[in-house]
């Protein structure tokens, strides 16, 4: 149960300084998954960790006002929808399921379009993992919402 807020000025300052950098690093990990270690799963976990750190030091009342569990559910569902549409939309344009070369982005062709499709899918995976992990944490900690 996370009921009490930490009144310590050190913890508040360090956490509030750290969280934006964790989120920025998470975005870097998601976007940079093409050229180095990284990708949707790792970046999504980092994003979820930033929200969980906020839950830990702010307490549930203020933290739920900033980022509610319903928003986490919405983020997870949006991530799943992005992945699903990246799979279904090429079907409508004459390709196979998850065949990114047939995505309707007409000014990019061939392998470049495949790289773009991988980026879209990675963003979808990142959002889904982010939402799900925050959701698991919230339901395990057991606050009503």
């Amino acid at each position: 149960m996370i009921k009490q807020h930490y009144q310590s000025i050190v913890i508040q300052t360090v956490c509030s300084l750290l969280i934006p950098f964790i989120q920025l690093f998470a975005l870097y990990v998601i976007i940079h998954g093409h050229y180095g270690p990284g990708g949707g799963f790792q970046g999504g976990v980092l994003l979820a960790v930033s929200i969980i750190l906020q839950r830990l030091y702010l307490g549930s009342k203020i933290s739920y006002r900033k980022f509610s569990p319903k928003m986490a559910l919405a983020f997870g569902a949006i991530g799943m929808l992005i992945f699903g549409f990246a799979g279904v939309v090429p079907l409508a344009f004459g390709g196979a399921f998850l065949d990114y070369e047939n995505l309707p982005i007409f000014w990019v062709h061939g392998a470049e379009l495949r790289a773009l499709g991988i980026l879209i899918v990675e963003i979808g995976i990142g959002l889904a993992v982010f939402g799900t992990l925050v959701l698991i944490f919230d339901s395990l900690v057991g606050e009503r919402w």
Partner: peptide, 21 residues
Amino acid sequence: DTHTPNIVTAVLADYRGYDTL
């Protein structure tokens, strides 16, 4: 095939995208 130097990402999201879905 994919213009993606990271082979793990290419296999994860493209060659085996159905698995990842």
